[in-house]
């Protein structure tokens, strides 16, 4: 016991780093964030419910959640495919492609927003093809989904890649020599191994999607009851100096984000367990 304690105390800086970390985090993030719950409590329960269940706000939530969900789903499917191709196959330009995946992390969201909006406008480079099919992309929920697919693209790829790299070839070879088909190997051996990280990537993309603002407001067109997203509702209320209203909408979004965080944490625990069992 004594020995253990002495071992723990060898490294310096516990007090210093604990002080810096908690102070900085509290001042910049935690105390301001707690204002959401203080400010929205000023509305009272009745007032709070009234704000967050008004037709316009409910519609904004619906648009935000639906578009974020569809975008995260698209990203899960294609992210899995991209990760698979990048890990398993070699082809010219692979390194370049691999680097390009992170573009949505590096490119400012407003820049992505204006580029996607003009690309997908009715007469834009890509939009014109959709116009031929009589589909409007920019200024519709479909356009919002396109922006969110762009923003969320790296999440699933970057989470799946290392897991796929770590799956041991021997397991697949064993399955193959026992007569499993390629399809069986994928669905019975590889996919279950990837599932926790796939869900984590999906949740991360979804959480990012419901809060995203910069890339969406340009392509959304922001028509009330049609393409208004929840973060924009907060912005609108703020511009009318309706702080309590803005905060109430934010409180609901925060609760959803926290739920996402909890789910992500649980998923990561699950995947760690998976790894341990694998070993």
């Amino acid at each position: 016991m004594k020995r253990k304690r002495r071992k723990k105390n060898v490294l310096p800086g516990f007090g210093l780093t604990m002080g810096i970390t908690t102070m900085y985090l509290s001042i910049i993030v935690l105390i301001p964030l707690s204002m959401v719950f203080i400010e929205s409590s000023k509305l009272g329960w009745q007032g709070f419910i009234e704000v967050v269940t008004s037709d316009r706000v409910l519609h904004a939530y619906k648009i935000s959640f639906l578009t974020a969900f569809s975008a995260a789903l698209i990203n899960a499917v294609f992210g899995l495919m991209i990760a698979w191709v990048l890990v398993r196959y070699s082809f010219p330009g692979k390194r370049l492609i691999d680097g390009l995946i992170d573009l949505p992390f590096a490119l400012p969201t407003a820049v992505a927003g204006i580029a996607l909006t003009t690309l997908y406008a009715e007469d834009g480079w890509i939009g014109q093809f959709f116009t031929l099919l009589n589909i409007k992309v920019a200024f519709t929920p479909l356009g919002i989904t396109v922006a969110l697919v762009f923003i969320g693209l790296p999440f699933v790829v970057r989470i799946i890649q290392p897991v796929l790299e770590n799956i041991e070839k021997e397991v697949e070879e064993a399955a193959s020599s026992l007569g499993a088909t390629k399809k069986q190997i994928f669905t019975k051996v590889i996919f279950p191994e990837l599932l926790p990280s796939l869900l984590t990537g999906f949740s991360l993309a979804f959480a990012r999607g419901i809060g995203e603002y910069g890339s969406v407001i340009f392509i959304a067109g922001n028509m009330p009851m049609n393409t208004e997203i929840a973060p924009l509702m907060i912005m609108t209320k703020l511009e009318q100096f309706d702080y309590a209203g803005a905060t109430a909408i934010a409180a609901v979004m925060l609760v959803v984000s926290f739920l996402c965080l909890i789910i992500i944490n649980l998923l990561q625990k699950w995947s760690r367990k998976h790894e341990m069992q694998g070993e």
Partner: peptide, 30 residues
């Protein structure tokens, strides 16, 4: 818990980040 709190800003919409700072540092804020 501390680990989760450090990651918190990633889960919060940037608009909400702006809003809470307005509430905290604004004329009516703390």
């Amino acid at each position: 818990l501390l680990l989760s709190l450090i990651e918190l800003p990633f889960a919060v919409s940037p608009v909400i980040a702006g809003l809470v700072l307005v509430l905290f540092f604004g004329p009516r804020g703390v």
